[in-house]
């Protein structure tokens, strides 16, 4: 470790970046929603080479990606974490 980090108050004037302003975060979120909408609409334009049936449905990858990710996070949070989480010094005895 080269040296200790300098600590500043993140809310002090001049320390807050563009990304940390609430309205900008909202803007980014809306931009993402818009891109997602366009991507689903593109399904109607671009012909898909379906390999195995299910993946030929409109919006298959979009739904799979969304549901899969939400499922992953919720299972990790509500099933795995209660099972495996222990205090930080669990093994230090």
């Amino acid at each position: 470790m080269s040296e200790e980090p300098r600590i500043v108050d993140p809310n002090a004037p001049g320390e807050k970046g563009w990304l940390e302003r609430k309205e900008n975060v909202t803007r980014i979120a809306w931009a993402l929603y818009a891109v997602c909408a366009v991507l689903v609409l593109l399904d109607f334009v671009i012909h898909r080479h379906a390999e195995m049936g299910a993946d030929g449905f409109y919006g298959f990858y979009a739904i799979y990606g969304f549901v899969g990710s939400v499922g992953l996070v919720l299972v990790a949070k509500h099933v795995l974490r209660p099972l495996v989480m222990r205090s930080e010094d669990y093994y230090d005895d």
């Binding site: 993402l32 997602c36 399904d43 993946d55 979009a62 990606g65 990710s69």
Partner: peptide
Amino acid sequence: SHVLSQVQLLFFSALA
């Protein structure tokens, strides 16, 4: 087709 599938998968994962 393949690029679109992958981009959809990733963007909707980001959306999640």
